[in-house]
Computed example of a mutant assay.
Amino acid sequence: MRVLVVDDEPLARARMADLLDRLGHEVAGEAADGTQALEAVRKLHPDTVLLDIRMPGMDGLTVARELAAQPRPPAVIFCTAYDDLALQAFRVSAVDYLVKPVRQSDLEAALNKARRLTQAQLAALAEAESPPGKVLVCNDVAGTVRLDVAGIYYLMADQKYVNVVHEAGTCLTDQSLKDIEAAIGEPLLRIHRNTLVNRHHVLALQRDADGHYVTLRGHPERLRVSRRLYAQVRQVLRGTEGG
């Protein structure tokens, strides 16, 4: 692939160029700030952009928004020293989010994602109609997605974000579990202070030495049920309790 490297630090650009060379990719060009990056994309038409976030003037998130508005945008992989901007990155359709110092194996995996995510796939995603039934909006490597709640296995709060595990993979949302629970309601069931489960996917309510947990149809995860919520969960799942 032809890759544009965007970073305000020359040493960082040189290191990325070296990694790309080792992985067999072509460095289409380099840019030291957001304005240069947009101009380079216009002239060079790279397949992928490795993009720093914190740069003088126009930052990487703004660059990514500008690129996403183009008819045939390149794939964007953020490479940054900051680990707290992942959700914002996925909101602007980033393929991946790598934290410096970037390891060669992580860069290779991200570039493979970029290769798989063709322009046809992006166009199909953007044009897809909203699925029927209740919908949850979240963000994954393809950008903003609208999930049919029926396809969600569970949601688990993790510091600033909520991880949404669904039939096609995972995504993130910055909505709180409380807000999601209030907005969607059935079939989401609170089983722990940090977990909502789709009760239609629950296979059984079981117990081990550490307490109670639920198992899911079609997913290997065991989800812990808090003592405080156990009676309520058991009542709702009384037809599916397995032990």
Rank of each mutant, 00 (worst) to 15 (best):
Q235L: 12
Q104F: 09
A120H: 01
V197S: 13
L61F: 05
D33I: 10
E186A: 08
Q232P: 08
G60I: 05
I77H: 04
G29Y: 07
I152N: 01
R65F: 10
L50Q: 10
D174T: 13
P132A: 10
A94I: 08
V3A: 02
E221M: 12
L85I: 01
Q206V: 15
A114R: 01
L111Q: 02
A231M: 14
A69S: 10
D148P: 13
V137R: 14
A14E: 14
V6S: 04
D106V: 01
S130R: 07
M1V: 00
E26Q: 00
V6I: 05
V92F: 08
K134P: 03
T48Q: 02
L20F: 01
L61A: 03
R190D: 09
K100N: 07
E39C: 11
A86N: 07
L125W: 10
I184H: 04
D96P: 09
E181F: 03
R217Q: 12
H166A: 06
A12S: 06
P56R: 09
M16I: 02
D140P: 12
E186P: 03
V164C: 09
S105N: 11
L38R: 15
D174Y: 11
Q235R: 13
D179G: 02
T80P: 12
L111I: 01
L19T: 07
V99R: 00
D52G: 11
Q175K: 11
L51C: 10
Y161L: 08
D83K: 02
R42Q: 15
D47P: 00
A157Q: 07
V162L: 04
Q206L: 15
E26S: 02
L98C: 05
T173G: 07
K178N: 08
V27D: 01
Q206Y: 14
V236M: 06
G151N: 11
D96Y: 07
H25Q: 02
T173M: 09
E181I: 03
L44P: 06
A40L: 05
M55P: 02
R65Y: 11
D140H: 14
V63F: 06
Y153H: 04
C171T: 08
G242M: 13
V102K: 00
L23P: 05
L85E: 06
V99Q: 00
L67G: 06
D210C: 08
H45S: 12
T80G: 13
R15W: 05
V141T: 15
L19W: 06
